[in-house]
Amino acid sequence: MNTLSSKLTSSTSARFSAFRLIDWSMRRELWEYRSIIWGPVIGLGAVLALYLVFLVKISWLPTHSSHMPVIGLEELRSWSGIVTTFLGLIGFVVGLHYSAGTLLAERRERTLLFWKSLPVSDAHAVLAKIAVSLLVLPAIVLALAAFHDLLVLGVLAFLPHDWSVSGALAVFGVQLGRTALFLMVWAAPAYAWAFLVSGVVRRAPTLWLLGLPVGLLLAEHMATPFDWLSRVATGYAGMGGALISTIRTQTCVRHAAGLPPAPPWGGEVHGECVQTGLRSGAELVTEWGVPMTACVVVAAVFFTLAVLRRRRAEAI
């Protein structure tokens, strides 16, 4: 009796840290959902393939090198901005798809019964899934966007241009920062809602994911005199659009463009641009501090409900 109970105490004390459990749970999510990695990679691959086609095309022009126009910071910004926006949107679609599928798939494939047979709590398992959608996926998208920016910068630095490298890096930094906010804060309530739907419904998660909010909006519009929900929805959509599109970085660029051409490796353009970048960051906080806090709170509520739901989840 004594030996048995002492054995039990010693064995129960052997446990792994939460970090280790979440780390391994994240790895297995990435084994399962290859699209988290390959979606954004394929997106960038498509962009690079377009470049290749373009390069082949201009190499046929007889006098391309002598008539090369000077590439301004605005062109660089808008070009990098388009690609960053494109990758950010791919990231969001991949993340939403993952969030709407993961908790449903493990119930439907009955693999839940395997995951639950291991000493990983539901909170740890769902936290790992949240970390995949709000940390791993944005990190991949941002790394690819940064890689693209540096590639473009590396090529253009050898062509005629009127901006400094550090100025361009500052522009990229602002763009990447906005994309990070888009994928990690703005997307959080959308993902969290998708998690909850995925943990509750038995089929057609996309229908619930979109249908319920749209249905609520329609109901409000038709059956009540209020426009509270539609204002929230418009605000949310507007915030996402403003974060992911790169219109705001133009302030920085105009400042930069108003200045005389600087030496290629540094100078005033850099200082001006970083300052403006920071200012637009501060503007962001004052303008969107409240909505962003709301995003975090709503996401936290839905994620918590998803954890509670997973505790009771049964294979279907």
């Binding site: 064995s11 084994w31 494939e109 019964l113 395997f114 639950k116 291991l118 709590s121």
Partner: peptide, 22 residues
């Protein structure tokens, strides 16, 4: 449950191992 699962193993059904898992 988490503590219990360090002491208890179970096979709840045939074929609950994920198909995509190596």
């Amino acid at each position: 449950r988490e503590r219990l699962m360090r002491e208890v193993s179970f096979i709840a059904d045939v074929a609950v191992l994920p198909r995509w898992l190596k």
